[in-house]
Design a protein around this nucleic acid. Structure first.
Lengths: 213, 213
DNA sequence: TTATATAGCGAACACCTGTTCTATAATTAC
DNA sequence: GTAATTATAGAACAGGTGTTCGCTATATAA
C-alpha cells in the first residue's frame, strides 16, 4: 500500500476523532475547515484517493457518507488481562492456572490496548517487585505482560526460573550447543550461561508498562 | 420514562440497524421510507419526542446529526495520544506545538488506556531511539508518555535537555541549594549534577511502554 | 524543451436534508 | 356535547452538501 500524504493522514485522524466525538461522520466542509484545506474539491480529491487505497468507504451522493475501514470499533480495542501475581528475586514465578486465566475469577485485572497484545491468547500480567531485573531494564513496580508458552524462539525475551539459584529473571534466551545463554536486555551487560536442566521457561514477555507519575 | 409508541420503537430500531450497517446515521427521509411514514414532518416530530425522552441526541441543522444515547461505547476508556517525534542522544527533544497537540494534525497516533494518563491534559508521546537512556531503564524503541510542563516537583522523572552537552536525558530531578541533581531511575547509579542554567525541563514522564514481542 | 501525472484552487450546480408552516384527523379531557 | 391535546399530511423553503468543471502550479519522465 502506498504511503499516505501528510494531508491524507490528517484527514483520517480528523474523521476518527469527529466520529467518536459526534457519533456521525463529518461533511466534506467539516473536514475542509478542520484540516485547513482551501477547497472542497481538494477534500473530495483526497477522499477518493483514500477510498481507492482502501482506507475508507464512501457512499456516493450521500451526505456524510463516509465509513472508516481501518479502525475496528473501539468497543473491543481494550482487552482485560488478569494480574496473577508478583515476580521477584527468590520467589517462584506464579504459573497461570485455569483458574487464574479466567478474568472473572481473579482479584486484580488491568486493561490494555489490543494493539499491545496483538490479539494473542493466554496473556497474563505480573507486577515486578524489587530491583532484581534492572539488567532487563525493568524497574520495581513495572508491569510485565506475559504469554504462557513452554518454549520460546531463539532471542525472545522470556521469564526464566533458575532452579539452582532459586532465581526468577527476564532474559533473552538463546539455545546453544549444550548450554543456554541468557542475555540481559541491556546489551552492554554480560550474558549468563546455564545448564538446560537448570532453566524453566515460564512464559514469553510481550510488553512492559511502567507508570511513573 | 414514558413508554415509546410503536412507531418510535421502529424508528430507534431502524437507526440502530442503519448505523451498524452503514456506519453513519440515517437521514430523516431514510427513516421515513424505511418505517413507512408518510411525511418527513412526522419523523421530525417523533425524533423530537425521542430526544426529549433522552433516547437520542440531535444536532440541529446538521444532516444525519442523530446520535444514539443508549449504548455507551467504551470509546473514552482509550485516549488518543499524538506521537510527535523521537527522543535520542544529541538531538533536541521535540517540543509540542499547537499544531502537534492536535491529534488530527499529527501523522502518528497511539491509543492508551485512560488509566495510564489518568485524564491529564497535554499528553504526547515520544519514541526512544538508541541506547542512551539505559540508565533510566529505558530501551531502544520504547515509547515514553510525556506531559508538557515547564517545571516539575522534586523527585519527579522529567525529560531534560542539557544545553552544554547537547544531550537529552530522562532523569529524576532534585533542586538543591544552587545546583540540580539528576538522578537516574536505576538507583544503583550515581547522580549527575548540573547548573540550573544548563538544564531545560521539557516535560514530565508519565509512563513508559515497551513492546517486546 | 515537451508531455504527463499529480495536486490544488475557486466557483457553480443540483440534489439532499432539516426545518417550518398550515391544515386536518384522531384521541383525550372536561 | 365542546375544547384541548396529540398525531399526521403535504408542501415549500433555505441552507447544507456531494459533485463537477475549468484552470493553474508543480514535479517527473521522455
Amino acid at each position: 500500500m502506498k504511503k499516505m500524504s501528510d494531508k491524507q493522514r490528517r484527514i483520517i485522524n480528523f474523521i476518527e476523532r469527529f466520529l467518536s466525538d459526534k457519533g456521525y461522520p463529518p461533511s466534506i466542509r467539516d473536514i475542509q475547515a478542520a484540516c485547513g484545506i482551501s477547497s472542497t474539491s481538494v477534500v473530495d480529491y483526497n477522499l477518493n484517493i483514500l477510498k481507492s487505497r482502501g482506507h475508507i468507504e464512501r457512499d456516493a451522493d450521500v451526505s456524510r457518507g463516509i465509513k472508516l475501514r481501518t479502525r475496528t470499533p473501539t468497543s473491543d480495542s481494550l482487552v482485560p488481562v488478569p494480574v496473577i501475581g508478583m515476580i521477584a528475586a527468590g520467589e517462584p514465578i506464579p504459573v497461570p492456572t485455569p483458574d487464574t486465566w479466567d478474568v472473572a475469577a481473579v482479584s486484580e485485572t488491568m486493561e490494555v490496548p489490543r494493539e499491545l497484545t496483538r490479539g494473542r491468547e493466554n496473556i497474563y500480567a505480573l507486577k515486578v517487585k524489587g530491583m532484581s531485573m534492572v539488567d532487563a531494564l525493568i524497574n520495581d513496580g513495572d508491569i510485565v505482560l506475559m504469554q504462557h508458552v513452554s518454549a520460546v524462539e531463539n532471542g525472545e525475551m522470556a521469564a526464566v526460573w533458575l532452579k539452582g539459584e532459586k532465581e526468577a529473571t527476564l532474559k533473552k534466551v538463546y539455545v546453544e550447543s549444550n548450554r543456554i545463554r541468557l542475555q540481559p536486555a541491556n546489551e552492554q551487560m554480560k550474558p549468563l550461561y546455564a545448564d538446560p536442566d537448570d532453566v524453566e521457561i515460564q512464559g514469553r514477555v510481550i510488553a512492559v508498562v511502567r507508570q511513573v507519575a
